[in-house]
Each structure stands twice: as C-alpha cells, then as structure tokens.
Design a protein around this nucleic acid. Sequence first.
RNA 1: GGGCCGCUAGCUCAAUUGGCAGAGCAACUGACUCUUAAUCAGUAGGUUACAGGUUCGAUUCCUGUGCGGCUCACCA
Length: 497
Amino acid sequence: MASFPLNLNEQQQQRIHKLDVLRGQGLDPYPPRSQRTHTSSEAREAFLATEGVADSVAPEVTLVGRLQSLRVMGKLSFAHIEDGDGRLQLLLRRNDLGNEAYDRFRKEVDLGDFVQATGPMIRTRAGEITLQVQTWQLLAKALSPPPEKWHGLQDVETRYRRRYVDLAVNPAVRQIFRVRSRIVTNVRRYLDDHGFLEVETPVLQPLYGGAAAQPFITHHNALDQDLYLRISDELYLKRLIVGGLERVYEIGKDFRNEGISTRHNPEFTQIEAYQAYGDYYDMMTLAEECWATVAQEVLGTTQITFQEHTVNLKPPWHRLPMHEAIRDTAGVDIDADRDFEALHAHVVERKLHIEPQKTWGRLVDELFKEYVEPTLIEPTFILDYPVEISPLAKRKPDAPHLVERFEFFVAGMEVGNAFSELNDPLDQLARFEAQQKAHVAGDEEAHPLDEDWIQALMFGMPPTGGIGWGIDRMTMLYTNQSSIREVILFPQLRSKD
RNA sequence: GGGCCGCUAGCUCAAUUGGCAGAGCAACUGACUCUUAAUCAGUAGGUUACAGGUUCGAUUCCUGUGCGGCUCACCA
C-alpha cells in the first residue's frame, strides 16, 4: 500500500477497494503480460473480409485497450475500448460470459482500466462492428477516473501539466504530435536524400555561440567547470565543414534563457544544415523545396491554413531585399541614410526606440520588425541584413555593410535564418571584437569571442551555405496551432509549490 | 517585468443586490439482453486556489500571495 500521503478522493478510494476485492478473488489487477492478436483496426478489417462471404466464419480475436465507455443494461452490456488504432465496441452478455465473469466486469471494472477481451467479431443490430466477448481479463487497473466524457479535459494548465491525461482523452492532441513526428521524419528524409550527413554535436559547451541569446549555465563536478547549454549548433557544425564533411545537419534541442511566450519555449527544437560550396541562394532552394515536400508528404497538400491566413508553400517563394521591404512599408530608404544619426532621426520620428546596442544595424532591424514583419504572410525570404546584427555571415561583395543573409517568414511568423557563412578568419575576429564592444555597452546577447572557432577558420573553410529553422514553429504552421505549447509535449511551466 | 482576465465537486460549468454553494457527466445503490452522450429511480461527494481585511453574514467587496491564459516589452 502507498506509504506517502496521496490525499485520495472518494473515487480513488473506491477503486483501491476494488483492487482488494480482485486480489481477494485471487486475481492480479496488474498482470505482467497480455495476449493481443489484433489491433482494433485489424479486427475490423478481418471482420469485413469475412462478412457476407458464404461458408465463412467470423474471426476470433483478442483485443486490448483502455475502457472508454460502459453501458450496462442488466444482463447485456456494451463498452468501448481504445487502443493505438482507435475505438472498438465490446458486447458482453451474461449468457456468453457466465455469471461470475459478467458480474466481475460490471462491478470491478471502471472507465480508464486496461482490459483484454476475446471472442468473435460480429455486427450489432445497430450496425456497429463489435467484439462479442467470450472471455475477458483485467490488464491494468486505473485508480484515478478519466475526465468527463464529452467536454473532456479542457483546462489548459492541467492539459500541459498532466499531458498523459490530455493525450488519453483528446484525439486531436495525439494527432498534432503524430504530425510533428512525421514532419521530423520527412525533414530528415529530405536532407538524407540530398546527401546530408546527420551528426550530433555537444549540448554541453564550454562556450556558447551561434545566435544572439543568453544561455543556461550548468556545472560539471568532476571537471569543476561551468558549462553552457547550447543556444545553437552552428559553430560545431561549421567545424565539421572545416573538417571536410561537405553536407551535415543536426536536429536537436537548443536552450535560450529568455522569456516564455506563445512562440518561445526555453528549450526548443531546431534543424540546422550546412552545405560546403553552397551559398545563401542554395539555402533558399533547400528551404522552399524541403518545406513544400514535407507538407505534401505529411498533409497531402502544399497549402496550409494558419489562423486567418491560407498560404501555399509551393516554390518559388517571394524574395525581397530588406531595404526594399523597409522602403515600401516604412517609407525609409536605408540605402540613402547609411550613417547612424541620419537613420536614427527617422526612427525617432516614428516613435520607436532601440536598446541596448545603438548601431545602424539595430535601427534597420527595428524598422523591419515594426513595419515589415506583420506584412509577411506569403512565404517570403527577406534578403541582405545589416552586418552589425549578423556576426557569422559573409559580407555582400558590393555592399560590405550588408551580409548575404536571409530570414524566412510564413503566415507572419519568423521561422528560419540562413546565410552564406563567413569563412574569412580575420573578418570573423573583427566581428567578434565588435560584439565584445556591444557586450560592454550593455548588450547581454552579444556573441562571445570564440577563439577556437577563429583557429578553425584559419585552417580553412570552403564557401558554405548554412540554414536553421525551428521545428516547433514549423509544426505550429502545419497543424494550425497559435501557441508553441500545443506542439511541445511537455512545455515549460512554473513549478507548483 | 507591465497590463487585462481566470482559479467553485474527479471533469465541464452555474450561483440574482453580499443572504442555506447547485447542475450535467463521472462515482455509489437498484431496475433493465442491441446500446452507443443508453434510459429510469435513489444516494453520496465542497478548506469556493491560498492568506488576511470589511461585514450580523463573503464564491460575491477590498488587500496581498500562488498558479495559469491572453497581451505588451524582450527575443527566435
């Protein structure tokens, strides 16, 4: 018996009493094995294969599953059990089971219990394909009752904190995570088919990098050394490009120590891919082809509906240089106002403020986020970012204040980031030094100087295109979920108590 | 971190102006051999998130705390 205070409610106490009754009858409420012969859909198919066929015999099956409904009508009862394939009805008759087995089902079994039932498949008078139970067995007793049967579990907090209940009673939630799994599988397949090698790089890193974010810090006891949880995979994957692995990718968790919102979870899943001898144009092709292919495979169409928007992921996507986008929406020509003060005047005029890094690039970024981002409904690549906010990307040869970088947007949501990778070690060093200045000036998300990465670049890296996007946000778009918590099985919540 | 909203039975929700805390489902007892939101009769189930305050009296009004949702800021 439980030796810790469980604060059992009345229904739980009743169910524990039933455990004692069952054990008193010499029955194990938690037997070690089951003997399934068919899943619910296999049993249904087996029945349909024989129904109406002359001289055929109804198939005899053994099904297992969780009891989801029970309708007792005296000497006849109906129930539904649910397995991984779906629901199937059970018919139990006193005549078939005998008094003892029938009464035990009525008295000792509760909604939520796992049961096993054996018998022939039949069709009831109401037309439902049903297992006519001859023998049955309890597989696992549930001590807590399931939520109410037609409103189900709706409380969002309880759904996230007790996801097992959510999954058990809300089929739509199960479907989201099936889609998520198939998205990951198909992204992987696309990259595998295009010659990319899947690799794993450290989550625990002596120095973090690859993005503008604050890290989580942890400690290794034996080494007596602080380590960071990675904020991106970028610099390790690019080390592999230096090492001669020409196409690599990784799908894994990144960790960013920032606010939580409907679009941000502290740990999130990102795909990053790097292609030697490629550039950011190759990454655009990769993104639009991969997203369209995955949508076709997973959803059966390249058209997706997200909230009030319906968009088509079919290539080619819009390609819009950032300065054009800002000119067309904000009415500011950033090419004309190349210095901080001139552009700052426009920003002040529009009552925007920038913190903490006061650079020309941040002003551009601010204008972009305010005016352009909300307009990006159709899948769109925004090209050519300011160098100050892109310390790992290669400069545009004809415009060295910009870099060959794009971010892409679908249905108003930023989903990914890519660039022609900076492979000039001395320029990389200069960029890191600029980041250090920004850090001193108060930008806590400035990129730290990674000396080992400079060493790697000095060994020589070919021209390379790299891309990353969020699997969580991709799943949000493909399943039409407006909160990232709906596509993460166990989203981060504050601990209770 | 700011603003707004929410927290009542296992679940979904009510409760009038501050006046006995209720319903449906689930549970328990009974009837019922083709139901499927089964039906019918009956029973039980509450620290109204928590801590204070006002009041003869608080689910209701006030203050604080916790947790959550949305949103703004920040970010991806």
